[in-house]
Design a protein around this nucleic acid. Sequence first.
DNA 1: CTGGATCCACTTTGATACTG
DNA 2: CAGTATCAAAGTGGATCCAG
Lengths: 116, 116
Amino acid sequence: MPHECKVETALDILVGKWKPVILFHIFQEEVLRFSELQRLIPDITKKMLTTQLRELEYHDIINRKVYAQVPPKVEYSITDYGKGLTPLLDSMHNWGLSHLEHLDQIYGESKLEKNN
Amino acid sequence: MPHECKVETALDILVGKWKPVILFHIFQEEVLRFSELQRLIPDITKKMLTTQLRELEYHDIINRKVYAQVPPKVEYSITDYGKGLTPLLDSMHNWGLSHLEHLDQIYGESKLEKNN
DNA sequence: CTGGATCCACTTTGATACTG
DNA sequence: CAGTATCAAAGTGGATCCAG
């Protein structure tokens, strides 16, 4: 089989309880410090924020810039390569949006989360 | 905020240890019986196959057709609505494919899975 | 300020046996 | 054939404390 399915590969990069929201904020703000991400995502713990950022960094989606100063300052931003995710994220967002409407039509708007 | 990110919504539908491969086979074969899916995905247990199929069915991605006969016969197929996932899955596959190459360039081809 | 390290709770998945 | 039920194992996320 010369042609294999790599959907899972893409999923692996985006999946993780906090990765979408982290990416959302960094895409939107361009550059964010660790503490700013914490403030934007109140429920995340430092541990999770760190690990999710590290994974995104490993995949060259985000950049980690450390300022050699005290107190420490670290800025996260989307890499040029990472910006290539934009069309895919848009597609996923749009499909997700329309899917919520579809579920509404099928099951009614009960028991569907409106929050976010 | 009138415009919220629904990337997670899309992720929720596709995520699950076996969902991508299940969808892959049903998309490819059009119609598959429970036992045929088991054969195509040797490592999956009946329990997981059942639950993942149920979730996809709940989201109206696949159709479950039960033949009232003995021994039982159940066929799974992609719904018309589910076929709307094709562009998204293609995008994810293509991005995943190029991402593997990108990782190769960064880290070399060591420690990257070649199997699948 | 930006983490790392540990320990624990919860969730997800797997193994196995059983059933209409 | 196509599941369900039960229990065990593994994986994931959270709470807390420590550190440069």
